[in-house]
Design a binder for these strands. Structure first.
Lengths: 160, 160
DNA sequence: TTTATACTAGACTAGTTTGATAGGGTATAG
DNA sequence: CTATACCCTATCAAACTAGTCTAGTATAAA
């Protein structure tokens, strides 16, 4: 068989972001678009963004614990951005939800770990190449904020 | 709990490359360094690169099926590069082993799929941001070859 | 103060993927 | 003809994902 293996559930591969992260980002965009004086209810976000409500609860709670959101309970309650949208980067959200961004554990600052089978890290060719990937990815994700996402759309290019 | 969840097994996340891909790349580098006139045995690669032999068999077979390698059976057999090292890109190998490189299925050309819960793909903010990530990643991975990896090492930067 | 609303917490589950291992089969050099 | 080394398929345990379920607790409005 000379077919490329493509995992079913996710169409593609490990370099994909999780549904959870996608939901988190969409929810934050929705919150950034909403009235900042009144909390936005989970159920409203879930409905407008097509996200399973109970799953979204977990996600927003997580973001709250990490100081991104603030919540208000009771009737008329919901979530509000704690930090301004232009101070919430995609990288920050991804690190909270999916973990470190580095494509190899040995390239992560926040969660460095040596590869178990690595012979000489300093001379590892794979590490060297993916270091460049990590740098580029980080540059984009850490400089793009929820506020940028809320701004007018521009052209989206296809890739790979 | 205000702790960032980090998967145990892999230290980091979905944006990591798989062991399989790492093994494939390491094996190709080893093959590129070896004498091109004589096949290099799986067991030799496995030993020198610290890769489980039977697992490596699968990987090399896969690379052979995709026209990267050539094999010779029997005594004195093994693998040889079919394409020159400077014509084997990291991106090509990763697509064979791990699947499409795009961080979202809706950004992949080779395996495009619409996100099930997407409301308006053209205006999807997440898609727009990750499109840039995909472009950068692709640029690095498709222009770096096994031959580059074999060349002298330069400084490796940490990221994320 | 009642009651509806909304957040909090964590256990649980079905399904998929990963990273292997096992056990043969097949070709080839000597 | 036999030892060697690649070829191929099947199977498996552990981990991860994407949820769901249950059982609350806190707050605000009426």
């Amino acid at each position: 068989m000379v077919t490329t293996y493509i995992p079913k559930g996710r169409t593609a591969l490990r370099s994909m972001i999780s549904h959870k992260a996608k939901y988190a980002l969409r929810a934050l965009v929705a919150l950034a678009r909403a009235d900042q004086d009144r909390p936005l209810a989970i159920s409203d976000i879930a409905k407008s963004q097509h996200i399973p409500k109970k799953f979204l609860e977990q996600i927003l709670l997580d973001l709250k614990h990490h100081g991104i959101l603030e919540s208000k309970r009771g009737k008329g309650g919901g979530y509000i951005l704690l930090k301004p949208a232009d101070r919430i980067s995609y990288g920050e959200v991804l690190r909270i939800i999916d973990g470190p961004i580095a494509p190899l554990p040995c390239l992560s600052i926040t969660a460095y770990r040596r590869c178990a089978d690595c012979i000489d890290e300093q001379r590892c060719e794979t590490r060297r190449v993916f270091s460049e990937v990590a740098t580029q990815t980080r540059r984009v994700l850490d400089t793009t904020t929820i506020a940028d996402a809320v701004a007018e759309p521009f052209e989206t290019q296809l890739a790979s």
